[in-house]
């Protein structure tokens, strides 16, 4: 993978220039957060020290300081020589632990509100996609569905699922709805599949199947209803898990 292939999305999150004091500390925290959130993936090579310092808007001295701390914390590993560089070492966190930590960051009210927002965007996009889809659009959606069905890990499912919803918004011919889906998936997308128990995976995939079927039939009302119900079910699942965390 090329060094500079940090996506625009991650670049925006990671590389907003720093302004306040305690720069090495701020850089350390920001990189550690990015690794913990999975924005930087395990084994991924960081850009060169000068590139990274440049992108973060700090001196190489400050960056080296931060990298030294991250190495001590076990977040980064530096290898010398050919093929060397600084590599991300994600802490091995069990899916359930990660879900719990993420859920604790959000209140029940926030979770419900995010669910409402997602449902509003997804159902509007589904309705418009049903009326504006061409055969080619449906074919693209089916390819992502096949990827979702073939997926074996939570990360793969999340990726395919995100692409289905983003493509539905693109099929609606709306850059604004598409941007909303992109933003929502980058903010809370990791939660969606962490919360699905193994025995329900097939059912959740079937919900996507039914939604794409409705889009293919150009049945706008059905597509809207199915999308709304699908997101509502996901939200209820997350709310249920969040409530369990409140049990004494």
């Amino acid at each position: 993978m090329p060094d500079s292939a940090l996506s625009t999305l991650r670049a925006r999150t990671l590389f907003a220039p720093l302004h306040a004091g305690g720069r090495a500390e701020t850089v350390t925290r920001r990189l550690a957060d990015a690794i913990a959130l999975g924005l930087l993936l395990d084994g991924e090579r960081l850009p060169t020290e000068s590139d990274l310092a440049n992108q973060l808007g700090v001196s190489t001295v400050t960056l080296r300081d931060a990298l030294a701390t991250l190495r001590e914390l076990g977040f980064v590993e530096t290898r010398r020589g050919r093929g060397g560089g600084s590599f991300v070492r994600a802490p091995r966190e069990h899916g359930a632990t990660r879900l719990e930590r993420r859920l604790r960051e959000l209140s029940l009210h926030e979770l419900r509100d995010i669910g409402d927002h997602r449902a509003a965007i997804a159902s509007a996009a589904a309705k418009l996609a049903a009326s504006r889809s061409t055969d080619r659009d449906v074919q693209t959606l089916r390819e992502h569905l096949a990827r979702l069905r073939a997926a074996r890990t939570t990360t793969e499912r999340r990726r395919a699922d995100a692409r289905i919803h983003i493509e539905i918004a693109a099929t609606a011919q709306s850059p604004r709805l598409t941007q909303e889906e992109l933003d929502l998936w980058s903010a809370v997308g990791d939660l969606v599949w962490l919360a699905v128990p193994v025995h329900e995976v097939g059912a959740v995939i079937d919900e996507h199947d039914a939604l794409v079927d409705a889009i293919e039939r150009h049945d706008a009302d059905a597509a809207r209803t199915l999308a709304d119900r699908h997101i509502t079910t996901e939200t209820e699942r997350l709310l249920g898990l969040r409530l369990e965390l409140c049990e004494p």
């Binding site: 993978m1 090329p2 292939a5 996506s7 625009t8 993936l41 999340r158």
Partner: peptide, 20 residues
């Protein structure tokens, strides 16, 4: 310059070969 993610294992992987 447009920066996209070319790593097939990444969540943000962009498979341009599928684009029309």
């Amino acid at each position: 310059r447009l920066a996209v993610d070319h790593d097939p294992d990444s969540v943000d992987f962009y498979d341009y070969t599928a684009a029309e």
